[in-house]
Structure formats: C-alpha cells, structure tokens
Design a protein around this nucleic acid. Structure first.
Lengths: 146, 146
DNA sequence: CGCAATTGAATTGCACGCAATAGAGTTGCG
DNA sequence: CGCAACTCTATTGCGTGCAATTCAATTGCG
C-alpha cells in the first residue's frame, strides 16, 4: 500500500471496528433471539415499549431507537402478525399510530430476560469500560445527528 | 416501566448506542460517498484493496472487513459493473476469485481522499478518545468472533 | 491413485436501513 | 372560515447482512 493519503489506511479507520462490532453484537443477539422467534430490531422495539409502560406512536418509538418509519413500519407489522403488539390509530390525532404490547408481548419479556445477561457473560468488559464505551458512543451519536 | 429485569431497561443497553452510532457513521459516510457514486460497503472494499496493494481473494477481503461471500459477492459485482474492480478466477486455485482495482478504481482513491477528513471534522473526538474507542471495539469484536 | 472431506464462492430467501415520495390528517395564519 | 404549510405514517426502490444451501475445485488420507 502506498504512503499517500494515510487517512485512507484500513487500520486507521474508526468506522470499520465500529461497523464490525455493531454487526457482531447484533449477530450474537440474533442467535439468542431466534430461540424465541425475534429479530434484533424486533427485540429493540419491545424493549422500548416495555420501558415506556404506555403505548408509543411510531415516531416516539423511532426517536428512542434512532429509526424512521420506513424501517419501523414493516418491523411493527411483523410483530403484529406474531401477536406481540397492537397498532391502532390515535383517536386524538389520526395521523399517529399507537403501538402497544399485547399480553403475549408482555410475556415475551420473561422469555428474553436472560438474553442480555447471556450476551454480556463471556465478554471481558468491565463495568467501567462499558461506561466509557457508552459515553464515547453517545457523544458520537449526538454529534452526527444534529 | 416496572422494576423487574432491570437488565432489560433501554438505557442500560450497550447494544443500542453501538447500533445507533454505527448506523449514524455509515449514514454520514453514505452522504459523502454518493457524490462519487459509492456506497459505504463498496468504499470499504476499495479501502481494503488499495491497502493490500495486490489482488485479494473474496475470502481475504472478507477477513479484513468481517463480511462473508453472501454479502461481498453482490457488492463486488456492482463495483465491477461500475468499472472499479476486476474479478478473476485464480489460475492456481480455481475455487478462488481474485479482486483487484482497475485504473479507474485506483483513481477513485484520489476522489475519496478527503472523505474521512471531512467526516472527522465536526466530531469533538480527541485523538486519545479515538484510540480508547478503537481499543474497546476491537476487544468486543475479538470476543464475539471466537 | 481414488475418493471422501474440506474449502471457496455463489445463490437463495428473508429482514432490515434509508432516501425519496406519497397521502392522509392537523395547524396556524390571514 | 379557508387553505397553505406542516406533521405523521406508509410505500417504493435499492443495497446490504446473514444463515443455509449448492456447486465446483482441491486436499488429504488409506
């Protein structure tokens, strides 16, 4: 490899480890989640809904997950087909669609409760490293989504 | 949100910021790369090929980018259609397909030389934070790809 | 040497991501 | 009130990612 444009050297890129690590984590989650029939984005949607404790509009869900309706609509339709969430027009604002977990969607919470734990086991990442990583990633997100 | 299974709280997940940051970076690269007609994975393939300085088999490229042939084959075909790389059976091992940049593929290096710089500008990430981030991500990748 | 096991790439099928656009509903301003 | 501007979700089109499978080429073992 030649010496011009050293900023193009593969081992100088931050973007590649970020991209590879994100996919590695998603892949590992995927392996654990197929056991209960979920994909990773579907799991994230449920996490956000459980967390909220009340129905969320598609846009509110998207704000929490940094995803838009183009991505969420088909994911939510699949969750609906699986009987895990309901999608209802907001009677107070017919533009909005409210998403809420069904009873079966709430039961799923128990079924995936051990997934984050199983994933973190086997990672040699300390509590402190985890906080550092989060802080750096959150800053990156904030700076890129202005 | 209820207090059971605190490990399922959305703001406790490392995976979500990792996923969101990776997509934010990829999206930003995508914006800069459309100017020259490249996608982010296509750009990564070219980076790896320029870096290697010699033809790479699909598998070797995949090892560098952590991608498999199922993903790479269509990406490489599009790069070939765009006239940026050649794909040739290895005469010494007909199972392998060697990928190499064309002259136009090499010229592309000049055209994207400012892309990483433009992306890093506007990020308030210090040299030291960048190294920390890389180290943590590389460890994560190593532990998940065993 | 002969052939079963292995390797490398391509193919298939499915689920994202995301830009761009469409289309329905709501708001705010004159 | 009327309607243009805006908001929210859905749709479209394209390019990944990835597991599973297929197919051809090579290797290694008896």
């Amino acid at each position: 490899m030649d010496a011009t444009h050293p900023q193009l050297a593969l081992d100088r890129q931050i973007c590649l480890p970020l991209y590879a690590a994100s996919r590695a984590v998603t892949r590992r989650y995927g392996e654990l989640l197929t056991e209960v029939g979920l994909t990773y984005p579907q799991y994230l949607c449920l996490l956000a809904l459980w967390d909220a404790g009340e129905p969320l509009a598609v846009g509110e869900l998207g704000a929490r997950l940094h995803l838009d309706s183009g991505t969420l609509t088909p994911v939510l339709k699949r969750l609906q087909s699986a009987g895990l969430v309901t999608r209802t027009r907001d009677r107070n604002d017919e533009r909005r669609v409210l998403v809420a977990p069904t009873p079966e969607g709430r039961r799923m919470r128990e079924r995936v409760a051990d997934v984050p734990t199983r994933l973190v086991e086997g990672l040699a990442m300390s509590e402190s490293d985890g906080r550092t990583l989060r802080r750096l990633l959150d800053r990156l997100i904030a700076e890129l989504e202005d």
